[in-house]
Design a protein around this nucleic acid. Structure first.
Length: 883
DNA sequence: GGGAGGTCACTTTTT
DNA sequence: GTGACCTCCC
């Protein structure tokens, strides 16, 4: 890496360091971009020195502040483009930032290599110093799928029952540790014990070791290994600290501990001291020596205060975020990071942006009142100068179908109204934000019926589709012959007769010879170890790979991809497939090849996709947006529909069960995010009955509805029209009856919803049999027991009392006990070309399958042996032993 | 080795 | 209701 060179301060053309100050002195008056900012925004842009936290509520111009700040820094000459580190979470945000900065400063933005996601910047740093953390600079980045497969292998090696200790669980555990900045040696003993009787830590260490052999890193490593690199190499860290004159962080409330540590390392000025004391001589520092007692996470909680040495010069770090929009706690985000920013970065200036430029008065008021119910927050009060606008509507529907139906009608109504006024309510400006993705289907069904255009945002991502992953695996094997995971994925896809047994043989051999699977496969293919059928198949495959690898250098990579898909039989496999989605998959493959053309080479393409798991497919047509609340963060729409506000679904039961009050508060923040997406109209729905996992369940309205301020809310009847089956479709008597045994439901929400409606459409325990066409089958409702009986053939039911699942787990054990114990022979250092011959011509040997024989020829690791019974065969030396 | 049938679980999601 | 995954049997 030619990195050091690039550190030499090259003379900057227009504004060298001194000129920057001059420019600042005179620049104050005529900076047009500052004029458009409100005073708080302006302060956030102009406070360049020292740590700054910008608490930016929803719609207060957060991105604007960030981008203007960058432009300002550049304009004043306070730093050169390559001296600004600007991190975001998503690629989308990074792209957007680049675009907006570009609009302000022009092509200068192209000279900002350190603008990107945490992960992309992490990789960039890691590739430059890969050797220092035990990787090669061309390491592969594994995704979740690869991770899990790798862990499966490790669990198998440990002979752990994968039913009891699923790889998925281990992956989550390790991921969690990595999020918290914990390397294997730092994992607290207590936690490590929780998995597989204390093997958790060992497995984590083994996993890391495997990654190194595979020359691979997972997403967590991109940051964690960076941290390790910095801690163990203060000189490297110092290079970066000196380089980054300004650090900007977007969505700070979403950072996890690892990201926090990473930022803190970079944002300090370290004196070069003894190695291993990267962060200076602070006693409580959890360094690689791991001497800190009671570490709960990689963050140095114990000695935290002593760590932040006041004298130490603090970098110019500016974090922008909103504690009220922290909704990713479940994947490791630490709201704490933002809540104690001034603690972590002493002397920090905190600037609140509270002027909202997005929503009308009622909407903002509703959102603000709701979020005020949270205790763990820094507290902001959003205000707007916009009109009061429409009140937030709350509508109760009988069931989720009615909910979808009335939302569909309201959308049509909105469009009619707009048309009457000679305007247009673009479908793009309408969003339906759901808590859980299963809710989406009902809307899709309904909109298809109505012929209403919609798009689902955030469905299965392009690169996660099986066919794409398969295709990529082929390309990975070509580009990276050591990529075992990719090889394993496609060795028998399409089916070519290389099943478990064959793969097992390859594995054994690879392990014995300490070589990548593909190399082992090539070797075995050249021998007679396998039965003729798989042998031929393997030979063909390996021959193909050899050829493709040669073509890699001569053909454009997109063309190569086409050839590979064709010649491997992969395309054919889907062409023959009769399932409904086969055509779509072929279409996706075409799209993949097309998208490859945008990249310079195969390497570049593979790098891109491992980091950027999305593909921009320009959609022109207007459509209603359906997405989860989570994926709506950062977006805004004129009209927002928020269905499914019921206890159990929103707030989600699981969130409450698992994280208690914190869980509830995060759900509430999610609700707040939902409402604040709306510019002009926010419409909330709840359905009394909803089918979840195939069973009907009856729900009470969400407690969040009670937390909305009455003055800003209007309670509505569901839009009628179709079939006249609204809230009034059944008489009060039935409601009373239901109520009589729904006595446990006395929550405020329930009561209020009831009184407001006068004739609420929900029976709590009543379990009416509901037949889809809107007719009630008024069955006996004498009690739950009878209900269960009545349920028999009916479609409506509640979960069986006892939980009903008879778990017959544990009946299986001992997964594939392999026949021969694998002895890893220390001397067997067969490198890929393996020149060390272990046998000599004439030696008498024994082979499991072919019996005894004499070596007649030696060719590296391959032996030709004249077997007494089986005749002359070519075999690999590790399969035979001397007699 | 591969297809057919049974069992289980099932919030949110980026990189 | 449904998809993913596992097991069994040919």
């Amino acid at each position: 890496m030619a990195e050091p060179k690039r550190y030499t301060p090259a003379p900057v053309s227009p504004a060298p360091a001194a000129g920057g100050i001059a420019a600042r002195a005179m620049g104050q008056r005529a900076l047009p971009y500052l004029a458009d900012l409100n005073p708080e925004q302006r302060e956030a842009v102009e406070t360049l020195d020292g740590p700054v936290l910008v608490l930016a509520g929803a719609g207060t111009g957060k991105t604007r502040v960030l981008t203007t700040r960058i432009a300002h820094i550049l304009n004043l000459g306070r730093a050169r483009p390559q001296e600004i580190l600007s991190v975001t979470f998503t690629n989308k945000a990074a792209r957007e930032m680049k675009e907006r900065v570009g609009r302000m400063v022009g092509s200068v933005v192209e000279g900002m290599p350190w603008m990107g996601t945490f992960h992309s910047i992490g990789v960039k740093i890691l590739r430059r110093h890969a050797e220092l953390v035990g990787l090669k600079s061309d390491f592969t980045i594994l995704d979740v799928d690869d991770q899990i497969r790798l862990m499966k292998q490790l669990l198998e090696a440990e002979k752990l029952d994968d039913k009891r200790w699923p790889a998925r669980m281990l992956a989550m555990l390790i991921d969690g540790w990595k999020n918290r900045g914990l390397t294997p040696d730092l994992v607290p003993a207590g936690e490590a014990a929780s998995f597989a009787n204390g093997k958790g830590k060992k497995l984590y260490a083994a996993y890391q070791e495997r990654l190194k052999t595979l020359n691979a890193a997972d997403f967590g490593d991109l940051l964690l290994e960076c941290i390790r690199l910095f801690r163990q190499n203060p000189d490297v860290l110092r290079q970066y600290q000196q380089r980054f004159k300004f650090i900007l962080v977007d969505e700070y409330q979403d950072t996890n501990v690892a990201q926090y540590l990473w930022l803190r390392l970079l944002s300090q000025n370290t004196q070069v001291s003894s190695p291993g004391r990267a962060e200076g001589a602070s006693p409580g520092d959890p360094d690689q020596d791991g001497t800190v007692p009671a570490i709960r996470d990689g963050r140095d909680k114990p000695g935290h205060d002593s760590l932040v040495v006041a004298e130490r010069e603090q970098k110019n770090i500016c974090c922008v975020g909103d504690d009220d929009q922290s909704i990713y706690g479940w994947r490791g985000a630490e709201v704490d990071n933002i809540l104690r920013f001034d603690h972590d970065f002493p002397g920090a200036k905190i600037i609140k942006l509270e002027r909202n430029y997005r929503s009308t008065g009622h909407i903002l008021a509703a959102a603000s009142h709701l979020i005020a119910h949270n205790e763990g927050r820094l507290g902001k009060t959003l205000r707007t100068e916009d009109v009061v606008g429409e009140k937030v509507q709350v509508t109760g529907a009988w069931d989720s179908e009615e909910e979808a139906r009335s939302i569909g009608e309201e959308i049509e109504q909105l469009q009619r109204d707009a048309r009457d006024e000679g305007q247009d309510h673009p479908l793009d400006e309408i969003a339906i934000l759901v808590r859980a993705s299963f809710q989406m289907r009902e809307f899709e069904d309904r909109f298809i019926q109505l012929g209403l255009n919609y798009r689902v945002i955030g469905g299965p991502r392009f690169y996660e589709r099986a066919e794409i992953r398969d295709a990529l695996a082929y390309l990975r094997v070509i580009a990276q012959p050591a990529d075992d995971l990719a090889f394993e994925r496609i060795v028998n896809v399409p089916k070519r007769g290389l099943g478990d047994a064959a793969v097992q043989m390859l594995h054994d051999h690879a392990r014995k010879q300490r070589m990548p699977l593909a190399a082992a496969a090539a070797m075995i293919a050249a021998t007679d170890e396998m039965k003729p059928k798989p042998r031929l198949a393997l030979r063909e495959l390996m021959g193909n790979f050899e050829r493709w690898r040669k073509q890699k250098d001569t053909l454009p990579h997109a063309e190569l991809a086409e050839i590979v898909l064709d010649e491997s039989g992969y395309t054919e496999m889907w062409q023959k497939d009769r399932s409904a989605d086969a055509a779509g998959r072929l279409e996706n493959l075409k799209e993949l090849v097309r998208s490859m053309q945008e990249f310079e080479n195969l390497q570049g393409f593979l790098e891109h996709i491992s980091l950027v798991m999305d593909v921009d497919r320009g959609e022109q047509e207007q459509a209603v947006n359906i997405m989860t609340l989570h994926s709506a963060k950062g977006l805004e729409f004129d009209t927002v529909f928020l269905p499914g506000w019921e206890e159990g679904l929103f707030p989600h039961q699981r969130s409450l069960d698992e994280s208690g009050r914190n869980g509830l508060e995060e759900e509430r923040r999610l609700a707040h995010v939902g409402i604040t997406r709306a510019r002009k109209r926010a419409r909330i729905y709840f359905a009394s009955n909803r089918r979840i996992h195939g069973l009907w369940s009856t729900n009470i309205p969400s407690r969040f509805l009670d937390e909305l301020p009455e003055a800003h809310v209007e309670v509505k009847e569901p839009a009628g029209g179709t079939g006249g089956f609204g809230m009034s479709g059944y008489g009060p008597s039935r409601f009373d009856e239901a109520q009589s045994f729904g006595s446990t439901y006395t929550t405020p929400g329930w009561q209020r919803a009831q009184s407001r409606k006068g004739k609420g459409g929900f029976s709590e325990n009543g379990q009416p049999r509901y037949v889809p066409d809107g007719v009630f089958d008024d069955v006996d409702q004498s009690g739950p027991e009878d209900m269960d009986a009545a349920r028999g053939g009916g479609r409506s039911s509640s979960p069986p009392p006892g939980g009903g699942r008879s778990a017959a787990a544990g009946r299986r054990e001992g997964v594939n006990a392999r026949p021969k114990p694998v002895t890893i022979d220390g001397e067997l250092i067969a490198k890929s070309t393996g020149a060390t011959a272990l046998f000599a011509v004439g030696e008498r040997v024994f082979h499991q399958k072919f019996g005894n024989g004499n070596v007649v020829a030696v060719d590296g690791n391959k032996l030709t042996i004249a077997f007494d019974k089986a005749g002359e065969k070519r075999v690999v030396d590790s399969f035979v032993e001397r007699v």
